[in-house]
């Protein structure tokens, strides 16, 4: 097996007086979708934000494609090829949809073929292309947030809860788009609370609890073992579709 594209070794992060990440060990293989699961408040979002450099790891090491990025500033991490979709979507509401996308295209130009692909995946973005992003609905903002990360090819995508709070029809749209991205060979680390979506998209899974990864393995193994889900996350697959 080739080297993982992203590796976290013993990563610890404090936020104010709270010790959130208590030694995260995680590997994200190339060309696979790795799901990061766990209950609320166990450190999933903090893990992604620490990888992006928004919060500094106080201990441990983060390696991206062989290079140590633990102490790099956020812009340098992004420019090394990581696309980030934050939990709060990070949409610039004062800018138009087009301006949001232009800003995300660090090369300075939008590839028309890539844009058409995005329009096909998220038709509302074509409709509201020239309109202010602040007036989009919650689901449309989430589409824009993901589309922004997809506007250029990245070596790794970090996506934080893309289906959170969305209507079922829009969840389906999101899942289709992410599946397209996966089929194009992208490496993705995806935080997801919706286990049905996680099971449909994930190749591998890492489960967090109390600021650590407590289990990792194949998604098929977790999906096929209701007892394991119950033990790791208090989940029951009976409820999944």
């Amino acid at each position: 097996m080739s080297d993982p594209i992203l590796r976290l070794e013993g990563v610890q992060t404090d936020i104010a007086q709270y010790h959130i990440l208590q030694g995260v060990d995680l590997e994200v293989p190339r060309g696979k979708v790795t799901m990061l699961l766990g209950r609320n408040g166990v450190g999933k979002t903090t893990t992604l934000r620490t990888i992006m450099g928004h919060w500094r790891a106080k201990a441990g090491r983060i390696t991206f494609d062989g290079a140590d990025i633990t102490a790099r500033p956020t812009p340098a991490i992004a420019r090394s090829g990581i696309g980030f979709v934050p939990e709060n979507m990070g949409i610039f509401g004062d800018l138009t949809v087009e301006e949001n996308m232009v800003l995300a295209a660090v090369s300075g130009r939008i590839d028309p073929a890539r844009r058409d692909w995005i329009f096909e995946a998220f038709p509302p973005l074509r409709t509201f292309w020239k309109g202010p992003a602040g007036t989009l609905s919650g689901g449309q903002k989430q589409m824009l947030s993901i589309a922004r990360a997809m506007i250029e090819e990245r070596r790794l995508y970090l996506i934080d809860e893309p289906t959170k709070g969305l209507a079922p029809a829009i969840v389906t749209t999101m899942a289709r788009a992410l599946r397209e991205l996966k089929e194009a060979g992208a490496s993705i680390l995806l935080v997801e609370q919706n286990f049905a979506v996680a099971r449909a998209l994930g190749d591998l899974v890492a489960v967090m609890d109390d600021g650590r990864v407590i289990w990792s393995g194949e998604m098929a193994e977790l999906a096929g073992d209701a007892g394991l889900q119950e033990r790791l996350m208090g989940l029951s697959m009976e409820g999944g579709h």
């Binding site: 992006m52 928004h54 500033p73 956020t74 812009p75 992004a78 420019r79 980030f84 934050p86 990070g90 610039f92 800003l103 995300a104 660090v106 922004r148």
Partner: peptide, 9 residues
């Protein structure tokens, strides 16, 4: 913060 996450200093 998001501007930095898009790669701008």
């Amino acid at each position: 913060e998001m501007v930095e996450a898009l790669g701008y200093r």
